[in-house]
């Protein structure tokens, strides 16, 4: 007989974990990857494909590939089973990301909430990474929505 799942305390988890920083990682931005990314996406604007363009920069969602060292904080409660589903990403581009930039990514849990539909209750966990460049300028915020079955 399988063990009954523990009740999910979404409200308690939100109170305890939202806003807590749990990972700090640095990322080097190189023109080769920036151009390959843009070209693979069908980008034709030379701002994103030509390293010699005076306004050369990464596509606005380039930071979505920068993964934190941990997905969740240590001691974070286990909701449901497995890793869950990638529900989508939101990117705010605050300033251009240039080749040679060294970005510091700080990761927090931005939100935890649940929704109930035909397939039952799903838990949404939003992981937020904020990226600042070597001049301490905020350049990008990425919210990654993970969905898990309660």
């Amino acid at each position: 007989m399988s063990e009954a799942a523990a009740p999910v305390d979404v409200s308690g988890a939100r109170d305890e974990w939202v806003g807590v920083e749990f990972d700090w990682t640095t990322f080097e931005m190189d023109s080769e990857s920036m151009i390959a990314w843009a070209e693979a996406c069908g980008e034709t604007d030379p701002r994103f494909t030509d390293a010699d363009h005076p306004d050369f920069q990464a596509q606005p969602n380039f930071t979505t590939h920068c993964m934190s060292g941990r997905v969740f904080p240590k001691e974070f409660p286990q909701f449901g089973s497995g890793f869950g589903i990638d529900g989508g990403k939101t990117v705010e581009a605050h300033a251009p990301i240039r080749a040679g930039d060294r970005l510091a990514g700080v990761t927090t849990i931005a939100d935890i909430f649940d929704k109930t539909g035909r397939s039952g209750t799903m838990i949404f966990i939003v992981q937020r990474m904020k990226f600042t460049n070597q001049n301490d300028e905020l350049v990008s915020t990425v919210d990654w929505k993970m969905i898990k079955k309660a």
């Binding site: 990314w37 843009a38 693979a40 996406c41 069908g42 980008e43 034709t44 604007d45 701002r47 994103f48 596509q59 606005p60 969602n61 979505t64 989508g88 990403k89 939101t90 990117v91 705010e92 581009a93 605050h94």
Partner: peptide, 22 residues
């Protein structure tokens, strides 16, 4: 998401995407 970004840049050259949510 990057493909959508490229489409917007082709439609509005010179404009800046400040937020994209997918």
């Amino acid at each position: 998401q990057g493909i959508l970004t490229a489409m917007i840049h082709r439609w509005a050259p010179g404009a800046t995407i400040t937020k994209i949510d997918t």
